[in-house]
């Protein structure tokens, strides 16, 4: 028996909007720790890892570890039917091939049940070891989204270079080149508006902008984004989900031929 009640149902709506274009089908894993997902895109270039900790749910009952295969497009369609202020409860019986999403309006005057078929998904689970990164950049998530969108109108790839001066995002295309430098800026009114650079070693890596633009669909989940960079390792683009966990995207770098 599984029963997860999330008062801030909009979080789950936002999570689905963040991952549904990158991944078609995925297994959601439920354990005492929380509700999690790990999945790769169809070309195995990017990986998404989601964790919503059990403590973040108003009610969390998971009698035994279960894995529920879902089509994320269909799940997003169902969650779109929930109001932004609705409380969302996920329910599944042991051995059942369906999951039920229950949406309650804040005043309890409207209650809806949506039942979705589960699927059997053969998915590979990757072990992601702790790593030391050469540089970690924290910046406003809206600023990062803007940069990715702007650069993708010029080129297909972005070179991210971190030095003591700041973090530079560069691209080149048929019409020309673009460079955007964000300097460390910790003297802002609100901490979420700061750009903070922790650098152990300068690093410069090339990535496909198409994937970054997909990751920025998670922007509504967090005011800030963290980029963890190391040469010869995938970049980690992390959006913290307040009080609950995170959504992390891993993208392998492009290598010069």
């Amino acid at each position: 028996m599984l029963e997860l009640r999330l008062v801030q149902g909009s979080l789950l709506k936002k999570v689905l909007e963040a991952v549904k274009d990158l991944v078609n089908d995925a297994n959601f894993d439920c354990s005492a720790t929380g509700f999690s997902l790990q999945a790769m895109d169809s070309s195995h270039v990017a990986l998404v890892a989601l964790l919503l900790r059990s403590e973040g749910f108003e009610h969390y009952r998971c009698d035994r570890n279960i894995s529920m295969g879902m089509n994320l497009g269909n799940m997003a369609k169902m969650l779109k039917c929930a109001g932004n202020d609705d409380i969302i409860t996920l329910k599944a019986d042991d051995g059942s091939d369906v999951v039920t999403f229950m949406f309650e309006s804040p005043t309890q005057d409207k209650i809806a049940d949506f039942e979705m078929k589960l699927m059997d998904i053969d998915s590979e689970h990757l072990g992601i070891p702790e790593a030391e990164y050469h540089a970690i950049v924290r910046m406003p998530s809206s600023e990062f989204a803007r940069i990715c969108k702007d650069l993708s109108s010029i080129g297909d790839t972005v070179v991210i270079s971190v030095t003591k001066e700041g973090v530079k995002f560069s691209t080149r295309g048929d019409i020309g080149t673009a460079n955007i430098v964000c300097r460390q800026n910790t003297t802002v009114d609100k901490p979420e508006e700061a750009t903070v650079i922790e650098m152990n070693e300068p690093v410069s890596l090339t990535f496909a902008l198409r994937y970054f633009n997909s990751f920025t669909k998670a922007t509504p989940l967090s005011n800030t984004v963290t980029l963890s960079l190391s040469s010869e390792l995938p970049v980690v683009v992390e959006y913290k989900i307040a009080e609950m966990g995170y959504i992390r995207f891993y993208l392998a770098p492009k290598i010069e031929d």
């Binding site: 195995h44 270039v45 590979e124 990757l126 070891p129 090339t206 392998a252 010069e256 031929d257």
Partner: peptide, 14 residues
């Protein structure tokens, strides 16, 4: 040019 590496080249199946 540059080529795209797969994420599975960095992380192993568990």
């Amino acid at each position: 040019g540059s080529s795209q590496t797969s994420i599975t080249e960095f992380y192993r199946s568990t």
